[in-house]
C-alpha cells in the first residue's frame, strides 16, 4: 500500500510538471498578451515607451526560459502571480472563487450519481421490455444536449413559465437547484450508460445463477451480487468525468451568473490573463490527480482481486 502511494505521488508530480510546462508553452505561444490587451487600449492613452515600462514591471520582457523558471519557482512556493486584468494577486482571486465552484461541482456529482443510479436500476428492473428499451435510450439523449441550451431551457421553464424557482433574490438553496441540475445531467448520462451495460453484463455471469440456485431473492441477488461487481467500470469512468465536470462548470456559471472558477476562467480566457489561466490549469490537474488516486485506492475495496500482485496467480 505505501509503495503504491509513493509511486503514485511520484507519478502525480511528473503529471503536474508536464501540465504546467505544456500550459506555459501554449499560453506563451499565443500572439499578444494580457498586458497589451489591457494597456494598448487607446482610451488609456499610453505611449509605447510607457507600455514597455509596464512590461518590465511585470517581468514580461525577460527571456522565455527565465519567465518559465520564475513562474515555476513561484508556483512551488504557492504563489500564483498577479492577474493583469484585475490588478490583484491570483491567490485571493482563487480563494474567493474556488468554494462556490467546489460546492456546485460536488453537488452536481452527487446528483449525477443519484440520477444515473436511479435510471440504471429503472432500466434494468422495469417490468416491460419496451419501457426498459426506452429508459436505456435516455442516456444517449442526455449526452446529446448542450449544457448552455439546457441551462437556458431550465430557466425558461422553471423560472419564467412555471415560476417554481425564483431568480430574483433566491435563497442560497434555490439559487443552486437549476445550476446543479444543468451540470449533473451530462455527467449522469455516461455514468448511467456504463452502469446499465455493466449491470446487464454481470447479470449473465455464472455466479448470479449460483446465487439464484441458493434461493436468494431477486433484490438480494441484484443488491449484493450484481451491483458490487458492476460498480468498478462506473468508478473508473467517474474519475475520467471529472474533466467534464470542470468544463460543465465554466458554462453553467456563465449561464447562471454565478461567481466561481468557471466564471474567472471564462474572463481570463477572453483577456488572455496568463497567470490566472496557468493557476487554473494546475488546479484542475491537481484535482484530476487526486480524483484518480482516490479511484485507484477505492477500486481494491470493491474488487479484492486488484490487491493481488501481478503474477501471483500463475
Amino acid at each position: 500500500m505505501t509503495r503504491l502511494l509513493v509511486s503514485r505521488i511520484g507519478q502525480a508530480a511528473i503529471v503536474l510538471l508536464l501540465a504546467f510546462t505544456a500550459s506555459f508553452l501554449l499560453l506563451q505561444a499565443l500572439p499578444g498578451d494580457a498586458i497589451l490587451i489591457k494597456y494598448q487600449n487607446p482610451e488609456m492613452g499610453l505611449t509605447p515607451e510607457q507600455i514597455a515600462e509596464i512590461r518590465v514591471l511585470y517581468g514580461a520582457d525577460a527571456p522565455i526560459w527565465v519567465q518559465y523558471g520564475n513562474t515555476l519557482w513561484n508556483f512551488l512556493q504557492g504563489s500564483f502571480g498577479y492577474s493583469v486584468q484585475a490588478g490583484v494577486p491570483v491567490n485571493p482571486l482563487l480563494a474567493t472563487n474556488l468554494p462556490p465552484t467546489l460546492r456546485l461541482a460536488s453537488l452536481g456529482l452527487v446528483v449525477a450519481v443519484i440520477i444515473a443510479g436511479a435510471l440504471a436500476f429503472a432500466a434494468t428492473l422495469a417490468p416491460f421490455a419496451w419501457l426498459r428499451n426506452l429508459l436505456q435510450s435516455l442516456p444517449a439523449l442526455m449526452i446529446s444536449v448542450p449544457v448552455f441550451w439546457l441551462g437556458i431551457m431550465l430557466i425558461q421553464i422553471f423560472s419564467f413559465r412555471l415560476r417554481l424557482v425564483p431568480i430574483i433574490n433566491p435563497s442560497e438553496f434555490q439559487a443552486l437547484i437549476l445550476p446543479v441540475v444543468t451540470l449533473s445531467l451530462p455527467i449522469a448520462a455516461p455514468l448511467a450508460q456504463i452502469l446499465i451495460r455493466s449491470l446487464d453484463e454481470v447479470q449473465t455471469q455464472p455466479f448470479v445463477s449460483v446465487a439464484r440456485a441458493k434461493g436468494a431473492s431477486r433484490a438480494w441477488v441484484l443488491w449484493r451480487h450484481v451491483l458490487r461487481n458492476a460498480l468498478l467500470p462506473v468508478l473508473t469512468i467517474a474519475g475520467v468525468l471529472f474533466g467534464e465536470l470542470l468544463a460543465g462548470a465554466v458554462v453553467t456559471e456563465t449561464v447562471f451568473g454565478i461567481n466561481g472558477l468557471g466564471r474567472i476562467t471564462e474572463q481570463a480566457v477572453s483577456n488572455q490573463d496568463t497567470a490566472v489561466l496557468q493557476a487554473i490549469v494546475i488546479l484542475a490537474a491537481v484535482g484530476f490527480v487526486l480524483i484518480n488516486l482516490l479511484v485507484d485506492l477505492v477500486a481494491p475495496l470493491i474488487d479484492p482481486r486488484l490487491n493481488t500482485p501481478i503474477g501471483a496467480s500463475a
Binding site: 455471469q205 455466479f207 470493491i302
Partner: peptide, 24 residues
C-alpha cells in the same frame, strides 16, 4: 420455489471460479 432452492434442492456447477462471486 425460491424457498426450496438451496434448502431442499441444491446445485453445484462446472468451473467453480466463474461460479463464485469474485468480490466476496
Amino acid at each position: 420455489h425460491r424457498a426450496l432452492n438451496g434448502k431442499k434442492i441444491a446445485m453445484i456447477f462446472q468451473d467453480p471460479l466463474s461460479h463464485l462471486n469474485p468480490v466476496y
